[in-house]
Write a protein that binds this DNA or RNA. Structure first.
Lengths: 203, 203
DNA sequence: TGGTTACTGTACTCCAGGTTCAGTTTTCGG
DNA sequence: CCGAAAACTGAACCTGGAGTACAGTAACCA
């Protein structure tokens, strides 16, 4: 796992991810990446077949990391609390706290990057990007369904839309936060989402 | 205003905007644009000093169009209703209806495009992008402030964050909607935002 | 110690993209 | 209908990036 080759591969992916989030996919050149990594072009093509292959690998890793992160936070919430609504509210709070600890602006989200440059990536990358969003929907709506079964919502809502709203707030919060250079905006938006859930389900 | 030169300029901008929203800024080449416009390269550089100049002109126009659109919807809401809360709710509904009438996926938002490729555009473009978001904040929070004065919110919120949440839901809704190819998602997310406002302020 | 893994370095092709400019056509006011 | 200003054309220039090919080398590890 942590052979020399894997370390270099990960390093290349780290650099690529950061640059893509900053500059976009097509503006990120292989030249850029290998210069920062201190590796030769041949070295790059030893690890990846090309830019498309790199994009796919990045999205795949991103998806796994996200799933790990979110399910970790849910598990933590379940450890601490029994009530599904309180778990959900805590989950959002934990997520907001994580975002709060970033000293810089949120680096961005690969899903958004590839979505806004969808004509530049192949169908496999598009597909896994969509899968990633569907993962979030599944994860969030699973918890919201538990809430839904225990508490009558104040308004007629469905849990899929509510789940998507969290993805929406995260993606939108990143964009707006970066656009006006306000580090804490994303956190505040997450807490607005939390308010909405409270108003919907709390007695 | 509608001299031949202006018509060509607008045509170039229309094509550029559509392509940038689809493929991103740096992936959109001048070659692309002029081919579709049926004009020569020299012709392009007669109208714009370069790509940066084009980006700035696009963002400027976008900002004006947005302001026109949003304030138009607010005026319509004011014509039809007197109560500020009901006006706000109607505004969101009108906005959602507009989005609903798009037969395709939402084309995207230039603010998001330039934000995710901020390293590719100059400081002027970054500045006007931020200004555009601040316009939305101003416009939305003006109305929300009126609501706030008439109705006690159920939870402690500030109108700036609430205003930003609408921008967030729009930007995020576009991303998520496009990522999974669901045309109606953005509309549904806007109605979730509307729900939140209702729960916050309605008796 | 020797084979596999992980590279380096160079050299090359091909093409796309941004930019410039001298010259040509079109438009339109007088 | 003339001439200047506006609106282009077309070709050339240069850079840079994706990808290829491959021979040689160093590091790792069984």
């Amino acid at each position: 796992m942590s052979t020399k080759g894997n370390m270099t591969r990960n390093k290349l992916m780290d650099i690529a991810e950061r640059r893509i989030l900053q500059k976009g996919f097509s503006a990120t050149s292989i030249e850029d990446i290998i210069t920062e990594a201190g590796i030769s072009k041949g070295g790059f093509f030893y690890h990846f077949e090309g830019k498309d292959d790199l994009a796919y690998a990045l999205m795949q890793r991103y998806r796994e990391q996200d799933a790990f992160l979110f399910s970790g936070l849910f598990r933590r919430a379940e450890e601490l609390l029994d009530d599904p609504l309180q778990q959900m509210l805590l989950f959002i709070k934990l997520l907001a706290e994580m975002m709060d600890q970033l000293e810089d602006l949120h680096p961005g989200c690969l899903v958004a990057s590839f979505t806004y440059e969808s004509h530049e990536v192949n169908d496999q990358v598009k597909a896994i990007t969509a899968d990633s969003v569907m993962d979030w929907r599944q994860l969030f709506s699973d918890q919201l369904n538990k809430v839904h079964q225990h508490y009558p919502p104040k308004l007629d809502v469905n849990t899929t839309d509510l789940a998507d709203l969290l993805s929406t707030v995260i993606e939108g919060g990143i964009v707006v936060s970066r656009a006006i250079g306000d580090k804490k905006l994303l956190v505040r938006q997450l807490l607005e989402y939390r308010n909405y859930i409270r108003l919907l389900y709390e007695a």
